[in-house]
């Protein structure tokens, strides 16, 4: 499947290519010259995605790069609890849903026929709209023979933006009772993330799972960091996440093993067999869990991790670059 790479134009200049081999330290000490989007995902929930994403962001903060953090887990957004941003801008998010003008409607049923989501139906002379099923595609509007359908905004969540120190922070929050996370994620990325050719580091904190909200988050990332725990649950769901990120989307992947030492060796064995690099191991320590419980970032609770997370970024940038240099259609790190 062809992949569209969101790779900044500046990266393919001669200077950009030449600098790749010597990037290991240059990444941190000088400005990035392209957009580097790293998604932090997991498959299984609660493995430490937000912990890794937040600490990665904090370790890079103040290193001179433009840094963006997008919390794309719009059903359960938690990163703000740790990054404590000042949210200065708010915007309603949602979609266009049909509104039928009864004066012009002939109850012909064409709208119901073209709607693939059963979000609009005709009973007798009356047209009923179910906004929670609507995907806002506009097909009913286009197909109505009498022009009886207009569209109105139906709010499904909010987007919020602000600063957490040097980090530009954005999050989406799905309203209670709303089903569709994807439009919230899509609009969050459009609103907050810099464009393809802007030089910046963008960290995307993904939702758990492997279905459409995860795909929407990962779609234009350069690299996916998968956080797992060394248990049979962690392994099972890591496999699922690799299927999405590497096999479906063709993105380079790397693994962080959180709570290392907790369970068994299954995750290590799997990563070795698949050639997936394990780029960080965070040990299973009660002290780490306790700091997390109180909202204290790991690199503050245990400052030695600041260096570990900076090194992590350097490794990820190299893996992303290696992934790009490879033929994109083949996908993934071999």
């Amino acid at each position: 499947m062809p992949i569209t790479w969101a790779w900044g134009a500046a990266a393919v200049t001669a200077a950009g290519v030449a600098s790749r081999d010597t990037r290991r330290h240059a990444i941190i000490t000088s400005q990035v010259r392209y957009r580097m989007q790293i998604a932090i995902a997991s498959g299984k929930g609660g493995t430490g995605k937000t912990t890794v994403a937040v600490n990665l962001a904090l370790s890079l903060s103040g290193a001179g790069e433009r840094l963006f953090f997008l919390d794309c887990d719009v059903e359960a957004p938690n990163a703000a609890l740790f990054l404590q941003p000042t949210l200065t801008e708010h915007r309603d998010v949602g979609q266009q849903v049909p509104r039928v003008d009864p004066a012009r409607c002939t109850a012909c049923g064409r709208c119901a026929e073209v709607c693939q989501y059963h979000a609009i139906t005709v009973i007798g002379q009356q047209v009923l709209v179910f906004p929670e099923l609507c995907h806002g595609c506009g097909s009913c509007t286009l197909n109505c023979p009498t022009g009886a359908i207009s569209e109105v905004f139906d709010k499904t969540g909010v987007l919020e933006r602000g600063q957490a120190g040097a980090i530009t922070f954005g999050q989406g929050v799905l309203d209670i009772g709303e089903a569709q996370a994807v439009p919230v994620i899509r609009q969050l990325k459009q609103w907050v993330a810099p464009s393809d050719d802007e030089a910046a580091i963008v960290l995307l904190d993904a939702p758990p799972g492997a279905s459409c909200p995860v795909v929407e988050t990962l779609r234009d990332a350069d690299m996916v960091l998968l956080v797992t725990e060394p248990t049979p649950f962690g392994l099972h769901d890591l496999r699922v996440a690799v299927e999405v990120a590497r096999d479906e989307l063709g993105l380079p992947v790397a693994v962080v093993i959180n709570r290392d030492g907790m369970g068994d060796a299954g995750v290590e064995t799997y990563c070795a067999a698949e050639g997936i690099p394990v780029v960080l191991r965070i040990p299973f320590r009660r002290a780490i869990a306790e700091a997390y419980a109180d909202g204290i970032p790991l690199i503050e609770a245990q400052p030695a991790y600041r260096v570990a997370f900076r090194d992590l970024y350097t490794t990820l940038a190299q893996l992303a670059t290696a992934g790009k240099n490879r033929q994109p259609a083949s996908g993934g790190v071999a």
Binding site: P208, A293, D294
Partner: peptide, 26 residues
């Protein structure tokens, strides 16, 4: 996990929901 589409399907028709949580800020 979550509160969106699959959760709404999971809740539908239930007589009782048991919510498992942990004492962390998240």
């Amino acid at each position: 996990p979550g509160i969106g589409c699959p959760v709404i399907s999971a809740v539908s028709g239930a007589d009782l929901a048991l919510i498992v949580t942990e004492p962390t800020v998240s």
